[in-house]
Amino acid sequence: MEMNSDKALKHDRSVMFAKRPKVLIVGAGIGGLTLGMLLHKANIPFEIYERAAVVKPLVGADGAYSAVRQGLYDKLKKAGRLPPADALPLPFNSVCLVGQTRPLTAEEFPDIWVTFTTAQNTVVFDIVQSLTNETSKENDAFKNSEWGPEAALPMCQQVKDFPIVSGGDKKLTLGDLFAWTSWDQVSKVMLEEKVFKTWYDCRTVLIGDACHKFSPSGGVGATHAMHDAIVLANRINGLPFHPIAEEIVTMFKEYQEERIDWVIKGFESSKVFKSMAGQHQKRPDS
């Protein structure tokens, strides 16, 4: 086919079929799914890729170990364009055990109808362990990709005798919750804290835990991931048809500029809540 050389070398939208950019979303966490939902409403084509073969009611927030970010940072590091702070390992000072029981009756857990309730009448629990320099080293080998009972069981054994409030006369402990919980509904996750400086490059952009990881004590991690998705979806929707690379990079830059101040405030407030909630309690037999 013979091409008109004058038009072939020019990015002329007037002679191109009107087409929205296609978005590839890696990770079906709350941020990725929110972004997909918003793109769907805007009639922007997208695909979502997720490594987990089965969707569980409990998921570990492993976006901090995003393969996309690691690949992006490797490329930037080789090119000498990665800020030194982004090349440092993720810092963490606590681990968390999360789980969800089977549906409970009011006889088993009287407060099931009042507090701690899900739509299925289950109890969702989390136990946070603050780490010292020594215990932090002991957990260095643990990776979020190693979820499962073999990672969670030692921590369950360590805290099983701690009392819980159930609303009834019977004295219950965390061990009772564990007994009501299937092992595939328990995860052990690392609690890292970091706001990365680099959120995008060329046609790749990061959202959620992949670019900012909060302590869960502040309860804002999921909220910020959804806000990222909203801002990014709006920015993508504002792109012209057939955007060129410079327009995409400018859009990513505007997305980060709109979000960064809110992210830093959320990060700082989460650290305050962590210090308030991280006080140690003595075991009942000590």
Rank of each mutant, 00 (worst) to 15 (best):
D6P: 02
A8F: 14
L9C: 01
S14A: 07
M16H: 09
P21F: 07
V23P: 08
G29E: 01
G31Y: 07
G32C: 00
L33W: 08
T34Y: 01
L35S: 01
M37V: 15
L38E: 08
H40W: 05
I44P: 03
F46M: 05
I48S: 04
E50D: 13
R51Q: 13
V54W: 02
V54T: 13
V55T: 09
V55W: 07
P57N: 03
A61T: 13
A61D: 06
D62R: 11
A64P: 13
A64E: 11
V68F: 04
V68S: 07
L72R: 03
D74G: 11
D74H: 04
K75L: 02
L76S: 00
K78N: 06
G80V: 06
G80W: 04
L82C: 02
P83Q: 07
P84A: 04
A87W: 14
L88C: 01
L88F: 03
L90Q: 10
P91I: 00
P91D: 06
F92L: 11
F92D: 10
T105D: 04
A106R: 15
F109K: 06
T115A: 12
N121D: 10
T122D: 09
T122F: 01
F125G: 10
I127N: 00
I127S: 12
T132L: 10
T132D: 12
E134S: 13
E134L: 04
T135V: 03
S136E: 15
K137L: 09
D140W: 13
A141D: 14
A141T: 10
F142D: 07
N144A: 12
N144V: 01
P149T: 02
E150F: 04
P154W: 08
V159Q: 05
F162R: 11
F162P: 06
G168H: 07
T173K: 11
F178E: 08
T181N: 06
T181S: 14
S182I: 10
V186T: 07
S187K: 15
M190T: 12
K194V: 02
V195K: 01
C202D: 10
T204H: 09
T204S: 03
V205S: 05
G208L: 08
A210M: 12
K213H: 06
K213C: 10
P216M: 07
P216W: 06
S217L: 09
G221M: 06
G221I: 02
A222Q: 11
D228M: 13
D228Q: 15
D228R: 02
V231R: 11
L232S: 01
L239Y: 08
E247V: 00
M251R: 05
F252D: 00
E257W: 05
E257S: 03
R259I: 03
D261H: 14
W262R: 06
W262D: 13
I264H: 12
G266K: 00
G266S: 04
S269F: 12
S270C: 14
K271V: 00
V272D: 15
F273E: 15
F273R: 09
H280V: 09
H280K: 15
K282S: 08
R283A: 04
P284D: 00
S286G: 09
S286N: 14
